[in-house]
């Protein structure tokens, strides 16, 4: 009820030149926003889609791999491991403005500790978040830093669900660690992998708040979400145009998410 109606309204606004300020006319204009987007497709929207896809693929692949690695290391039972897991999960429970502010401070090239470390230890100078070359990767890293804990927990649940007999059978066969992982653990983790990959990629495709706080979408980090936000809100903004981008974003998510889910499910079955 509180999710659907406002979403439908967004869909409707995408066909208007509505400013978003209450009390102003809606200016229904049909497909004008979509037409405008098509005419500037190459420079604007397509660029944002490409950045979004790069971001989502990078985050999904690395975060899933790291989460699995962490799960294998920290899956053991025991109080100390409970504690380690809590630490790893910690970044995930902080809100975006806090994390964003924190990393702006850490990565400030003049007054931040990371800049100082790189200067003193390696003699490297970098603008970090202000560098068109590495900015997107840094934001990916921060996103992964925040999300790893979730992924790890999903994989640990998956690992716990693997019956002990499977491993026993493998050790009887004299399989080494790697082969056990390759032939037993990995295939049996398929459901956990599905959940992890799907949730991570969906969240990454929609990401904008963190980017907004860290770079405002500058230095090659303008994802579709950021583009939507900056178009919809601001002094000269139009909610109508922003809504159109939100709809494009939604269909992109639906397309990729649906495809991914199908592929992952099929993989679960064949494995």
């Amino acid at each position: 009820m509180f999710g659907l109606y406002p979403s439908v309204a967004t869909f409707f606004y995408s066909f208007t030149q509505y400013s978003g300020v209450p009390g102003t006319p809606l200016n229904v204009c049909g497909l004008c926003n979509y037409a405008a987007a098509t005419s500037s497709l190459l420079s604007n929207v397509a660029g944002a889609i490409w950045t979004t896809v790069k971001f989502a693929v990078g985050v999904t692949v690395v975060q899933t791999a790291l989460s699995l690695g962490l799960a294998l290391i920290f899956q053991r039972r025991g109080r100390s491991f409970t504690f380690y897991r809590a630490i790893i999960f910690l970044p995930g429970i902080l809100s975006v403005p806090i994390v964003g502010g924190m990393f702006s401070l850490l990565l400030d090239p003049v007054s931040g500790p990371v800049g100082e470390l790189f200067r003193n230890a390696f003699g490297i100078e970098s603008a970090f978040l202000g560098s068109g070359r590495i900015s997107l990767f840094l934001i990916m890293g921060i996103t992964i830093w925040m999300g790893c804990g979730y992924g790890m927990i999903i994989f640990i649940a998956g690992l716990r669900a693997i019956p002990r007999e499977s491993y026993e059978a493998a050790s009887v066969d004299g399989a080494g660690r790697f082969r056990t992982f390759r032939h037993i653990t990995w295939p049996l983790l398929a459901p956990a992998t599905t959940v992890c990959v799907f949730l991570t990629s969906m969240a990454a495709l929609g990401e904008f708040a963190l980017v907004l706080v860290l770079t405002e979408g500058n230095f090659g980090t303008k994802t579709l979400g950021v583009y939507m936000f900056t178009s919809a809100f601001g002094t000269s903004s139009q909610l109508g145009y922003g809504s159109m981008i939100a709809i494009v974003q939604f269909f992109l998510t639906l397309l990729i998410g649906g495809g991914l889910l199908l592929a992952l499910r099929r993989r679960e079955v064949t494995l």
Binding site: Q17, S19, V21, G23, T24, P25, T235, S236, S237, Q238
Partner: peptide
Amino acid sequence: KPGGFAALVAAGK
């Protein structure tokens, strides 16, 4: 069409 707050002014609000 004016965007943002300009729309409010243009609409006579």
